[in-house]
Amino acid sequence: MKVKVGIMSFAHLHADSYAHCLKANPNAELVGIADHDPARAQAKAQQFETQAFDSYESLLASDVQAVIICSENVHHARLAQMAAAAGKHILCEKPLMTKLDDGKAMLAAAQGASVHLFTAFPCRFSPAFQQMKRTVESGAIGELLALRGTNRGSNPGGWFNDPELAGGGAMIDHTVHVADLMRLLTGQEIAEVYAETGNNMFHGAFDDTAMLTMTLQNGIFATLDSSWSRPKTFPTWGDVTLAAIGTRGIIEMDMFAQHLIHYDDRAGRIKQVFWGDNIDYLMVDEFVRIVAGAERQILATGEDGYKAAAVAIAGYESVRRGEPVGTTSI
């Protein structure tokens, strides 16, 4: 029996990747697509050889067991609550929410309806990260003292540059992945956040440069660069790096270092061609397995998504106040 999955909105570009992952998964069936843009629903349904539903309601009224939500950030809460009310399990694109109240409502809705709510944090599935985590846990670098992370990217443009739809700019887009990895690596919550932002890359009404400093519950400190600072000629979309500094040594991860360099005369540019494991596939596969009845192993919960998004939200509050802010005081 294949697990029946639908996709709610293709506003976020990751929806394409998840659709490919579902098509490639022997245990899953992409039952259909709904989108508030009907033309996009039609086009994507054709591309992925599935059905276009004319509304979110009609998709949720079908026999899908689970949905992946890839709308604009600000709509996650509404769509997740609709899906929960219809009894569907949910994998929601990150950031889980743009406001704390939205996140709380999503968690409550899923709990109330006894459906799973997960957050799309594929970086957790990276074999390099998993090995880093085992290494740190083994005590090989001694006691953990500090962390340094980056998740730089290119400006995705479109609604990502509209804080009304995205909940912010680069900081809300790119903080959550590595904040989640830091929580997972240390088992500690992020207690305090200080952030500096800027807009010198694109000079728009949104942050394109963001640097967060975080203090974890046990005093470990960390910084995270979540800027859209990759130039147009950069050979790939961006990076995810994480370094852990311990009393006996350090370990540094570059999640997408497993690539070839392609000097492409036809395209007139240099490109990185990644050959490591497909972490989106690994994440979607665990989601499918859980819907089929398996135990959760790595997949990020709704709570994990909430905690990570709260870091970015605290970051914006820090920028407003011009000082570090506690994540529980916002």
């Binding site: 003292l145 500090a146 800027g198 440069t209 640097m211 400093t213 910084t223 800027s227 500094i245 350090i250």
Partner: peptide
């Protein structure tokens, strides 16, 4: 780990280590 904000709006980050 040091974060700087410049007058021109740029953000700077410096890592200094005697731990590596």
């Amino acid at each position: 780990l040091v974060t700087l904000k410049f007058k021109n709006g740029a953000v700077g980050h410096i890592e200094g280590t005697w731990c590596d």
